[in-house]
Structure formats: C-alpha cells, structure tokens
Write a protein that binds this DNA or RNA. Sequence first.
DNA 1: TGAAATTAGTTGCATGTGCAACTAGATTAT
DNA 2: ATAATCTAGTTGCACATGCAACTAATTTCA
Lengths: 149, 149
Amino acid sequence: MTTDAPFQLDGFLAFRLARAASEVSQRLSKAYAGFDLDVPQWRVLATIADRAPVTAQDIVASTRTHKSTISRAVRKLTERGWIERVRSNEDGRAWALQFTSKGEARFEELLPLVRGFEREMERELGREALLALQAGLDGLETVLDVGWS
Amino acid sequence: MTTDAPFQLDGFLAFRLARAASEVSQRLSKAYAGFDLDVPQWRVLATIADRAPVTAQDIVASTRTHKSTISRAVRKLTERGWIERVRSNEDGRAWALQFTSKGEARFEELLPLVRGFEREMERELGREALLALQAGLDGLETVLDVGWS
DNA sequence: TGAAATTAGTTGCATGTGCAACTAGATTAT
DNA sequence: ATAATCTAGTTGCACATGCAACTAATTTCA
C-alpha cells in the first residue's frame, strides 16, 4: 500500500472475532464429536433444553440462525428420534418442539462435555481476560442488538 | 432439563463469539457490497496490502483459512485482474502474490469503506467496551495460539 | 365477513467450504 | 546421488448454507 498506514488484518475487530469464533467453535466440536451433531443441531438442542417447548421460530430468533438451517436441523433431530414435534395449539402453522426421552438422555450425556469445555476455556483464559471478554461481548451485543432473548 | 442448572446458550462463550462474529461480518460485508468480494478474497487482498509479496501459504498461516479456500480466492482475484502471481525464486512450488495496478486502485477505493466501518463500530461500542473486547481477544488469542503472525 | 397482508415452516437451487487425493517441486538422510 | 519424506498449491466430491419461492395457517382491516 502507498497511502495511509498499511492495513493490518490482525488489528481488525471483525477479523479477530471471526478467527477466534471459528477456532473456538472447531475445538468445541471435538468435545461433542461422536454424537454426530453439527452446530445448528446443537443450537436446537440447547434452546429446547433451556426452555422447551419452543418453536423453530423461537430458535431462529434467539440464535440468529437462518430459518432454513434450523428447519433442516429440526428435521434431522426428529428423524434421529432425539426430539418430537407437536402442532402448536395457539398457532396451527407452528410446531412445538421438545425432547423425546432418548433425546433428553443423550443431551444429558452431552452437556457435561460441553460444560467441561467451557470451564476449561475459562480457566485457561484466566479471570481477568474472561471478565474483559464478557464485558466486551456485552457491549458488542448491545450495539448489535443481538442480546438476551 | 432436569439435572443441574438449565443450559443457557446465551451465556455460552463459544456461542456468543460465533453469533457476534457472524453479525459483525455480515454488516461489514455491506460496507464492501458492490465490489463483489467474499470474505476469503478480502483476506487475500488485506494480507497482500499488509505485506506483499506473500505466498498463498503465508495467507493460510496468518488468517487460519483453509488452503483450498485461499487457493480458490486467489484464482478468482487473478482472473479478475486484481492480483498477479509470479513463481517464487526461492521455492518453485510457491507463487509470489501482489496487486496489479488495477487491484491496488480498487483496494484503495475499498479501504476507506472498511476503515470507516471499523471506526464506526468502535465509536458505537465506546471506549470502555472496546478496550475490554480487545483485551479479551488478546487473552483468547494467546490461549488459542492464534496470534500475531 | 372476506380480501390482503403477514408469518411458520419447507424445499429447490446455486454457491461456498472442508477434506482427501493428487501433482510437482524441495528437503532430508543414508 | 537417490530414495523417502515433506510442503505448496489444485481439484473432485460430499455436504452445508443462504436465498427465494412456495404452501398453509393466521392476523389485520375495511
């Protein structure tokens, strides 16, 4: 480059976020390798675990994942017998999603692994960096209006 | 869920990072819409701008993007006449990548838009959250060993 | 009420990605 | 020197994703 300071990809927030997110996500996926879950499926399960019964639309809204992606994740989990769908009483277009007993059992095997990963990452980060990261994400979520459902 | 505290996807670092990164990245892409660039192409350009001549392997290492993805981004940019490839003198397998004059001109149109986006995001975040986010990312990059090339 | 607009969810299509296998050049070790 | 190993980059393949168009159910409003 000639004009201005040389552009430093490494100092660029969007890039740092993307790289960190992809690295963390890749490592996390190793924690639940063997369960044959992809990220959207994991998000569906976690949302159901948090506040079943939910609709696909609820999951779309709270995870900001595209509705076609959620739709396909729901289909796979239904086919695998982890979750079941019941037509919503309030809205005949929507489906209420909840675990089957098999799905709940699998999720409870899975959860400690994921929690372990999170705790280990927090431990490695150390208290100070963890608090900074959380505060930074709080601010970012406010700016992006991507927050607490 | 029955055992343990309910799982809160919203409090989970890997998820918060992924969601924030994808949202920021999507907004940024609007800043350079019209240049018809995808993320890998942007990374190639930014790395070349920062320290040309570079090889594809340099870009792979510093951006942590898969080599096939970088290979295809390099091909597209070459076909579009933004960059050119010259066989490296030191290593006959590698190509030295650099801007064409057209590519350099385009990048210099592009750069202010991207810088503007970054500044605007930093302004909206505010000094305190920005510093926190940067400190958090510093820590995370150290833990992930994904740092300063 | 009933027509128009909205919303939940699905699916075909085009595109992007990672993986693994491959080519060709470089390096290492005997 | 030369065989074995390693590395840079490319490409076929399988798969995941976003978009847009679609169906069906709901809401709005005149």
